[in-house]
């Protein structure tokens, strides 16, 4: 830190230390020098607005291949908004705008001419609430390959996807039953299997276990560890133990008051590092307060 900056810091109350997330991101990237080819997403200075208000502001971070990256933080800090940038799901909200750049294997995701449909084919997503289609288990799996015009051996894809999602043994005799006849945990694993069926590169998970009981949650966490072998995973979670248990890196977001008068808040990246460092030796006091349970 140069002297001008540290002076600026000294004049402010401790909790209000401005964190330049750009500088932070460069810092972490240098520290854990990874091969450039392992870089899946490079997020630079991304701000997402709903209308004029930013939901998250100036976020920069890198996501690496075959890692599980957890996004944690209090409600309203923009984690879900942020994760939806990776597969351009925010495009579907008319008032949402994304500023800054996100590159995916070096290619600008938001460049003109990039088809969001193509993006979503490579970058799968699992949602907070299990959302199987009102069809059979088998049809749920085959929907992705069908709409993407993939010529596949249907039986093989169904079995392989369900096996990878650790669901095969439970549903092998129920392939033609309605997906709604499965339990909540099974439905969520079906949604993961459905995402796997189109063989994506990245799987985004937006609080995939928040609607599930502890046993189903444990299953999903084990599954994520297995899936890591083949896929890169980004997960949003409210559950800090979950982040600590499954992820390789953790990004801590928080809310910051944007406008005193209206108490409007926007989300901000506070710290991004190896999960172990975030939970054992965080650099920022706000991170420490959050992970130790003193806040949020």
């Amino acid at each position: 830190m140069d002297s001008a900056q540290s002076q600026a810091v000294r004049q402010r109350p401790v909790l209000d230390v401005p964190v330049d997330s750009r500088a932070l991101a460069h810092h972490t990237a240098a520290e854990h020098s990874k091969l450039a080819s392992d870089l899946v997403f490079d997020v630079r200075d991304v701000t997402v607005r709903y209308g004029v208000h930013p939901a998250i502001r100036n976020v920069s971070l890198q996501i690496y291949r075959h890692e599980i990256t957890a996004l944690i933080g209090p409600s309203g800090c923009g984690k879900s908004t942020f994760i939806r940038c990776f597969n351009r799901m925010n495009d579907l909200i008319p008032s949402a705008t994304v500023e800054g750049t996100i590159t995916y294997h070096g290619q600008d995701l938001y460049a003109k001419g990039v088809d969001p449909v193509e993006v979503r084919r490579r970058i799968g997503m699992v949602f907070q609430k299990p959302n199987p289609f009102p069809k059979s288990v088998r049809e749920n799996i085959l929907f992705g390959p069908k709409v993407n015009g993939m010529e596949v051996d249907a039986d093989e894809v169904v079995e392989r996807s369900l096996r990878r999602a650790a669901l095969w043994d439970e549903v092998r005799n129920k392939l033609n039953d309605s997906a709604y006849s499965l339990s909540g945990g099974q439905q969520q694993r079906l949604c993961i299997a459905r995402a796997i069926a189109i063989d994506p590169d990245v799987i985004l998970m937006d609080e995939p276990a928040s609607a599930l009981d502890p046993i189903s949650t444990g299953r999903i966490e084990d599954l994520m560890r297995e899936l890591q072998e083949r896929y890169t995973i980004v997960i949003v979670t409210h559950n800090m133990q979950q982040a600590a248990r499954v992820s390789d890196r953790t990004a801590f977001f928080t809310t910051e008051v944007e406008d005193e008068a209206s108490d409007f808040r926007s989300g901000k990246l506070v710290e991004y590092d190896f999960t172990e460092k975030i939970f054992k030796n965080p650099s920022d006091r706000r991170t420490e307060d959050y992970v130790t349970g003193r806040f949020g």
């Binding site: 997503m125 609430k129 929907f143």
Partner: peptide, 21 residues
Amino acid sequence: PLAIRDGGLALGATPWQVSYR
């Protein structure tokens, strides 16, 4: 439900495919 739309689109379906199927 909106979740059905999101689920379809997240699997790389076009808006038309989601509407139709």
